[in-house]
């Protein structure tokens, strides 16, 4: 282990960070019209508890009136919301196209792993029924959220009406319910953190230990999920009345932007899950449903999982 260089240890993290920085830079520099200086200031203020969006004391009565009546600094975040919501309608296809392209390239490069199973009856139970329930609930909910989310984004195509409105409400309700699933996933994502004792329940929540490339995906999934859960729940609950409008509108704008951003980014990791579970390895999806895998499958594809299961005496 000591012989590994820093690069080898953290390759996955560095590549992910670089990728995000590159994508982020292109977007921020060339596509977005957000006032980033303001947004950073705002975030700091919000962390300290001031979510009004007023960064400095108003210099004139008129500015004060605008702050009180309409909310501060309209030109910082709101135009970006308008731009983003419009461009999401038009251009989000290209993002997905790019993301799918990455996986197509991966597939071309790596092909599909096809473990040879000689003793199909020698199986090991990898996922408990609870774990399967969580995983499939997540798959179901995410599908609903993605579909109903796109229903909002692309309602220009549906032209609104009762059904899209119902779907939108379903998006909110499902989102709130998903918070529970997301919590479990956060635990899973953090299960091999150094802080946990080696025999703690957390560590064995899901068998196997992470490789950086896998961990980073779990990690981002949890983080983006946090963004979505937080912003979504806040948007639903922090509902402005006409009198509190000015105090919360800027915060809500930032939250909506967070929701937009997180939803685009999380799509990459969702696609990764789809790729990993359905395409990269044959038989994975089936095991996800039944909870059991042939011992040979694990020996070939996930020896770490088998190792873990042996430790707790389940294999």
């Amino acid at each position: 282990m000591e012989s590994k260089t820093f690069w080898e240890c953290n390759k996955a993290y560095i590549l992910t960070a670089l990728g995000l920085v590159l994508v982020g830079f292109v977007f921020v520099k060339y596509l977005m019209i957000m006032d980033w200086g303001y947004l950073i200031q705002f975030t700091l203020h919000a962390m300290l508890g001031d979510t009004s969006g007023v960064m400095s004391a108003p210099t004139s009565e008129l500015q004060q009136m605008m702050n009180a009546a309409f909310g501060p600094a309209y030109n910082t975040v709101a135009p970006e919301i308008i731009r983003a919501s419009n461009e999401r309608q038009e251009f989000i296809w290209y993002v997905f196209f790019a993301e799918i392209l990455i996986f197509v390239l991966l597939y071309i490069k790596n092909g599909r792993v096809n473990p040879t199973i000689t003793k199909p009856n020698d199986t090991v139970q990898v996922f408990t029924s609870f774990q399967r329930a969580v995983i499939w609930l997540n798959i179901g909910m995410i599908s609903v959220l993605v579909l109903t989310g796109f229903n909002i984004t692309w309602s220009l195509r549906s032209e609104g009406g009762d059904l899209p409105r119902l779907l939108r409400e379903f998006h909110e309700l499902t989102g709130l319910a998903w918070i529970g699933v997301w919590l479990i996933f956060t635990i899973i994502a953090a299960k091999d953190m150094k802080g946990w004792r080696s025999n703690s329940t957390f560590r064995h929540f899901l068998p196997g230990s992470y490789k950086p490339s896998k961990r980073v995906i779990w990690f981002f999934y949890a983080v983006m999920g946090a963004g979505l859960c937080f912003s979504g729940a806040m948007i639903i609950t922090l509902h402005p009345s006409s009198l509190t409008h000015a105090d919360v509108i800027q915060f809500r704008r930032v939250l909506l932007y967070l929701h937009f951003g997180a939803s685009v980014l999380i799509m990459f990791f969702i696609l990764d899950f789809v790729y990993a579970s359905a395409i990269s390895v044959k038989g994975y999806l089936k095991g996800l449903w039944t909870g059991t895998y042939p011992r040979e499958y694990l020996e070939q594809v996930a020896p770490d999982v088998l190792e873990d299961l042996k430790k707790v005496g389940r294999a």
Binding site: A69, F70, G71, Y74, A78, I81, I82, S85, I152, S155, G160, G161, P164, R165, L167, R168, E169, I235, P240, S242, H245, A246, I249, R252, R253, L256
Partner: peptide, 13 residues
């Protein structure tokens, strides 16, 4: 559909 985007975009609430 009650998405509320207009609320974010409106300068006047």
């Amino acid at each position: 559909i009650g998405c509320g985007y207009c609320l974010y975009a409106c300068p006047f609430g």
